[in-house]
Amino acid sequence: MKPAPFGYADPTSLDEALSVLESEGESAKVMAGGQSLLPLLSMRLASPTTLVDINRVPGLDAVVVGDDGVRVGALVRHVGLLHHAGAAAVQPLLARATANVAHPAIRNRGTTVGSIAHADPSGEMTSVLALTGGSVTVATPAGSSAVDWADFFIGPLETSVHGPAVVIDAFFPALPARTGTAFEEISRRKGDYAVCGAGVTVTLDHDSRVTSARASYISVGLVPEVHDLTEAVVGQSADTADWAAAGALARTLVDPDGDLHASADYRRLLVGVLTERTLARAAQEAQNR
């Protein structure tokens, strides 16, 4: 379990990072927290020619909170979002989801943007980016541009970004008014990848009737998906809505795979259970926002 030989570059500016990536070609790999990448290297499941370590690039470590949302720099560790009260106020899903990311040691080192760029459907933050309708900023030698989440995730561990590029931040839009959120995972052991996880938002009108109910799941599809469950509960009161019906609807919308830890059927069961539980909590929260 030792990596194959690889080159290492530690650029001190974004331009330098991009120029190294440009000269090294497709087999160079950007490293931020390294929590997923380095085990792949050690098991020789990945053998990049060069690791471009962006930890010394200035300006990528900020959490910028605005009225419209939270912009998270590429070097912000999960723990930085977990304990960021300002970010949580604008978009509560950030702290709720990062609390479910692995264990403290991994949260201390792993980055939220790195996790998104890794595009693992078992990752929490890919799902949250989707649910919030977020985007990432991709820097290339030709300049930077925003890429919407739906255009970013192509498949498991695969994004639409190719060639010399660094994902320099992720933007999570603010939670709309009268909207509540909830996030819950079921894992075999505390801190493991979720067998199934759910993040949801519920929006109410001024009479506390449901106008929107949306969910995104962890470890359920090949790429993050957002499912609109509103039709099952639209117009119903937050206190008495038929959340089980929303759960039942969710079960028909997902297409999970089975693996060593859960059959597809079991995952579908959990999608229903978690949907029902989280929507009910989110609706309660929405009444107070």
């Binding site: 075999r188 830890h261 859960a262 059959s263 079991y266 069961l269």
Partner: peptide
């Protein structure tokens, strides 16, 4: 026995 097997 795991939860998925108990469900089965």
């Amino acid at each position: 026995i795991s939860p998925t097997e108990l469900y089965d």
